[in-house]
Amino acid sequence: METSMSVEEVMNQISKLMQKEGQQLRKKQVKKSNPELMKNALYYFPSWETAIEQSVGS
C-alpha cells in the first residue's frame, strides 16, 4: 500500500483534530470526514486508538 502522508503528518493532523474537536475522535466519524487520514493512520499504527495515543503523547 502506498501512503500519501508521513507518520509525522498523520500525527500532526490527529493532534490538530483533537484540539479543534476538543474530544475523542470517533473512528467512524474520521473515516467518513477524512478517509485519507484514516488510511494512513492505520498504515503506520496497529489501530486508530494507538494512532490517537501516539499523537497526543508526543
Rank of each mutant, 00 (worst) to 15 (best):
E21T: 09
S15V: 01
F45D: 00
T50P: 01
K32I: 06
M38C: 07
M1R: 03
K39R: 15
Q54N: 13
K20R: 12
E49W: 04
S58Q: 13
E49A: 12
V7E: 15
K32S: 08
S58Y: 14
N34C: 04
E36C: 03
E2T: 12
I14V: 12
I14Q: 00
S33V: 04
Y44N: 00
T50H: 14
F45I: 04
L17N: 03
M1A: 05
M11T: 06
N34S: 11
T3S: 14
Q13C: 03
Q29S: 08
N40F: 11
T3H: 13
M38P: 00
E53C: 03
R26I: 09
P35Q: 03
E36I: 10
F45K: 04
V7K: 15
S55I: 01
E53Y: 07
V7L: 13
E53H: 07
K39I: 04
M5D: 04
S6E: 11
T50L: 10
S6Y: 07
W48H: 05
S47D: 09
V10Q: 05
A51F: 04
E8R: 14
M1G: 05
L42M: 13
I14C: 00
Q24C: 03
S6N: 08
I14T: 00
V56S: 14
S33L: 12
T50G: 03
Q13Y: 05
P46D: 15
S58G: 06
L17P: 00
S33M: 10
Q29Y: 12
T50V: 15
T50W: 09
L37G: 01
Q23P: 00
E21H: 06
L37A: 03
Q24S: 09
T3D: 10
S4L: 09
S58D: 10
T3Q: 14
V56L: 15
Y43M: 05
Q54K: 15
N34D: 15
S15H: 04
N34Y: 10
I52T: 07
W48S: 01
I14F: 01
G57M: 14
K39M: 08
E49Q: 11
K39G: 00
Q23H: 08
E49L: 07
K32L: 11
K28S: 14
T50E: 15
T50M: 14
V56N: 12
Q29D: 13
F45L: 06
Q13W: 06
E2K: 13
